[in-house]
Design a protein around this nucleic acid. Sequence first.
DNA 1: CATGTTCAACTACCGCGGTAATACTACCGG
DNA 2: CCGGTAGTATTACCGCGGTAGTTGAACATG
Lengths: 130, 130
Amino acid sequence: MSDASSFRLGDLQLRIMRVLWRCGPLGVAEVRERLDGDDLAYTTVATMLRKMEDRGLVGHETLDRRFIYHAAVDERDVTRSMADDLVDRLFEGSLAQAVSHLLQTREVDEDELAELERLIRKRKSKTAHK
Amino acid sequence: MSDASSFRLGDLQLRIMRVLWRCGPLGVAEVRERLDGDDLAYTTVATMLRKMEDRGLVGHETLDRRFIYHAAVDERDVTRSMADDLVDRLFEGSLAQAVSHLLQTREVDEDELAELERLIRKRKSKTAHK
DNA sequence: CATGTTCAACTACCGCGGTAATACTACCGG
DNA sequence: CCGGTAGTATTACCGCGGTAGTTGAACATG
């Protein structure tokens, strides 16, 4: 399970997954109303969910004639996969290059910088006793 | 020029752009032979280039009856746009969260960690006298 | 001049994300 | 029993990335 497949989710798909990850198993209507932004047609969400089920991203059980959908892939797996994908595509797999670019082109406040330093130190200690 | 549009390039498009960015203006055949990996049909590359020209990603001049294509968008703009896009989509815009995730899920050697530390220190000094 | 070569132009097709209308089905209330 | 309501199933359509065959025009060359 959780084969290292490369997930490449579209915008709506990602938003739907987020809803399911955050709010647990939900019916179509519940998913729909929890999607922020533009109000999509009920059938749009239903169709998308079915397509996503075909791809194994979600699953469903029938309860009282309604479909209750749940996420079938792990959030971390998807996130990692998509992030790795981009790092590979844009920065030839170099994490340092990616971070460097982000640091140079984005607004980064001091809190965030401090947080990053903390993360790196933590990571460093972890690598040490390898 | 360089409006802050969100570039979302496909795989082949990105590979083509990289060729044009690295090797300067080129004819279709030159672009094609510089694309690593799978050998695409000549017409595939030509078609893609035309589609990309429609979108303003590249431009061309005619020289000796041949089309010489050149990149019409800046590499940094595209890279930033795509990277920002993903950080927004996956990490709600939080750079720290993004980097944190990358650090936790990827193999990172010590050299890279050191490089990251260096980058952050550099960035810190830059923010200081702002 | 005829012919082959080298392009660009045009056309087509697939898959998929996204969006949705329409059709069907089952249940619920009177 | 019958009509509304809620929900799924079916079908359709657009845009775009990707892939490529076919056509047509111009040029080189014997």
